[in-house]
Nucleic acid binder design. Structure first.
Lengths: 205, 205
DNA sequence: TAGATTGTTAATCGATTAACAATC
DNA sequence: TAGATTGTTAATCGATTAACAATC
């Protein structure tokens, strides 16, 4: 059995990766846990500890080669490959996601978009033709797609999630402002701007 | 000095509130820490512990009155009032946010939207006229706005954040895929779909 | 009353930090 | 070599859970 890595550590790796990519864009070759920590507001010790769960990626005295470390983190996170992602819902958010070109550099490729509204089906969203969500389950299953983003109204989200799970999806990023219940083995991440705003008002006057 | 509440507790309160609102919509009057916990995948003990940081909101033997508890949580989070929020960036995401009607029930009101592109300035985004971002700092300061959402390209985000801080904004929800550095006392939340997706691929095969 | 559920304490569990030998 | 920084251990800190008296 492989060593059990805390989920909170997994959650920080994408942040590290994003910072490494930015440093790389700035033309930097090498960094240190201290520098990375200062940029991210995370302690240097924590960064070293997190990375040490997976191997030894640095050199004493000099730090980490940025390109090398980025590749290692990509490998750990399994984003050194391309994941097909389905979008469900072709409203404002679904279309914004379909047109977003930031996914490809990060390991993802939008592969289908679905909606239930007859007036949207057959229309365009980014470079995709919007498909009928009645065919969703079989198309996703046939394509072997494991990841999906939900951008449908709150009232529809649970039903969509259920169908996605039946189709074999095991990772869901939901923009619907409701809690989704899924079986063990299926991961869910939520994006709800109101929730994020409400996390901050407590500290305001 | 008021008791110091862990940020992780504050982070769960909006989740509780959202679940309470949903129960309320379902016509329910009363719930228990156990029921709430089952819906959210959180232990009942944790919910009781979290709430007990702020007061005694339940009744032994019966549980919590949903409407009452929701109001208490709103008060704790300070979303029993309306917060004006500025949007910076009128691309796909900014316009989706400007047109989103879910904010008003959750304590927020979009009040302005800005962009730097001449061809967008003066145009419409939802019910708003897009303003010139050169006037952003003074308009936000004049209106006393404390919250903003950033929906500009990654390359612009830090400069925008700096201006927002200068204008008096103290809570920023950023959709730009970069880490923002802000002074102490300013809170930042990030929404980056790639980061959320990358948090899940580790668990896939 | 009997049953249910809270609020809270103490115990457990897990995450973060400090410190430093190893070494580039 | 001297200085810097890693990887790792042990100590600290903080969060979660279990358990139960209080009480509705």
């Amino acid at each position: 059995m492989p060593k059990q890595i805390p989920d909170i550590v997994i959650g920080r790796l994408p942040i590290y990766l994003r910072a490494l990519l930015q440093m790389s864009l700035e033309g930097r070759q090498v960094t240190s846990s201290q520098e990375l920590g200062e940029r991210l507001g995370i302690s240097a010790a924590q960064i070293r500890k997190d990375l040490s769960q997976f191997g030894e990626f640095g050199k004493q005295g000099t730090g980490y080669n940025i390109e090398f470390l980025a590749n290692q983190v990509r490998e750990i996170l399994k984003v050194n490959r391309v994941w097909d992602v389905a979008i469900v819902g072709a409203g404002d958010i679904g279309r914004a996601l379909a047109g977003y070109n930031g996914f490809s550099q990060r390991g993802f490729r939008i592969s289908m978009i679905f909606d239930a509204k007859p007036e949207l089906i057959g229309g365009q969203a980014g470079e995709f033709t919007i498909k009928d969500s009645r065919t969703m389950k079989e198309e996703i299953a046939a394509a072997g797609i494991q990841m999906a983003m939900i951008a449908v109204p709150a009232t529809q989200a649970q039903a969509v999630a259920d169908q996605l799970v039946e189709a074999g999806v095991r990772a869901i990023l939901s923009y619907a402002p409701v809690n989704l219940n899924v079986p063990a083995g299926v991961r869910v991440q939520n994006i709800d701007p109101s929730i994020h705003l409400q996390r901050m008002t407590y500290y305001l006057e």
